[in-house]
Design a protein around this nucleic acid. Sequence first.
RNA 1: UCCCCUGUAGCUCAGUCGGUAGAGCAGGUGGCUGUUAACCACCCUGUCGGCGGUUCAAAUCCGUCCGGGGGAGCCA
Length: 462
Amino acid sequence: MNDRISQLLKRTPGAAVVTAEGWVRTKRESKNVCFLEINDGSCLKGLQAVVDLADFTDGPLLARITTGAALTCTGTLVASPGENQEVELRVESITLHGEAPADSYPLQKKRHTLEYLREIAHLRARTNTMGAVARVRHAVSYAVHSYFNEKGFYYVHTPIISTSDAEGAGEQFQVTTFDLDAIPRTPEGTIDYAADFFGKKAALTVSGQLQGETYALALKNIYTFGPTFRAENSNTKRHLSEFWMIEPEMSFCTLEGNMTVAEEFLKSVFSYVLDHCADDMAFFSQWVEKGVADTLRTVVDTPFAHMTYTDAVAELVKSNDTFDFPVHWGSDLQTEHERFLTEQVCKGPVIVTDYPKEIKAFYMKLNDDGKTVRAMDVLVPRLGEIIGGSERESRLDVLTTRMTDLGLDPSDYWWYLDLRRFGSVPHAGFGLGFDRAIQYITGMQNIRDVIPFPRAAKQAEF
RNA sequence: UCCCCUGUAGCUCAGUCGGUAGAGCAGGUGGCUGUUAACCACCCUGUCGGCGGUUCAAAUCCGUCCGGGGGAGCCA
């Protein structure tokens, strides 16, 4: 394989013949030379290829090269007399693989809105912004695996198809092989799921946590990192029907250890991106969200503050007149409250713990006060909650009581409860919405622009 | 799902009090030029989202449907 353009740009000028492959971003013609900026997605910058018109006689070929065309150029790397690049390619030969006729190619050499680019999602990866998002998304994925690997966590592939009828985390997409025009019925007239592919009602997963816990209670420390599906008809800039989620789970671990890992994990990932995607982060800081790289650096450098929900509410109540939704003990925190805590009260990341049990999930460990649970939310400036997690309820009796109180049938969770019957141990974990993390890191306003092919209600064209 | 805004040239938008449309960019041609948001001149482009209604006359007013954006709820 030939060198990527990112590698060519780091080389020093020399007599060796090199090959550059990529797509033309822009073409500028002068009397004696023609400049082609070639980009292959390996970095933000393109390689300037210079065609000397005195030597290059194939004018018709040059005329067919327009913005978007795919080329292989060979030549030598020379020091550039121009201001914006160290080296440039002095072209000796060009192979034009695919043309991109200017009158029909949807990407023009001008700025396009993100809304327009969403309509041509199959081509938008060729833009500066989407290319940078793609590289950062890759780097963050790598950093996530790298962090957990170094810390002795095992990557567990939890199922995409779930038959737990009561995961309770949201509307599910049903999975069936039924002929929808002739759905089998029981004698009583209800749908006969026993006749369906899995023999029971099945759906796409809304969380890998419950299955993740089973492996944490065997391998001690595990994490999941996979797609998740919610069939909610929510149309916002931070929701997708199909998104990626990271869920670590740790045995022999309480809420304190959970907080330590969450902080270390975030800092490790942010730090990796800042170090390895400096150009892309500078691009986001300049064009997408002013100073977003500095915000990340601050998160990396600042020890996370800790406060209980009760203390947080006490702080918020002092400023209740500034909120659209005033706070009282027992109410869920809105984004405006979360941002106030992290931006005004703590002036940095903060982990809020011990929420009222009424506003948290059934599996969270009940505190001795009987009113709060060992939950934690990690709040960061500009966004609010970025991580939610908890110590899990490891006591069988307390857990079944909680489920019954909430109207859940413990028998639906028999295997989950077995984890508390056999070798139960304090354990904890948290969840991070991967795409939202990418939003936070890049400053991109709409989650549909940080995933290659967004799925949302009425949106699955590509 | 609810509320608000919006839909006009390839793209981004303007269009007054109802009188069938314009600017920038992109594209084309020519000129200039080691250019890099290239520059200068000229040229081309429209079922004004769809359907229906009011009116002598609708991009403009009304109804409805469809698309897009923002906010809320829900959440990751």
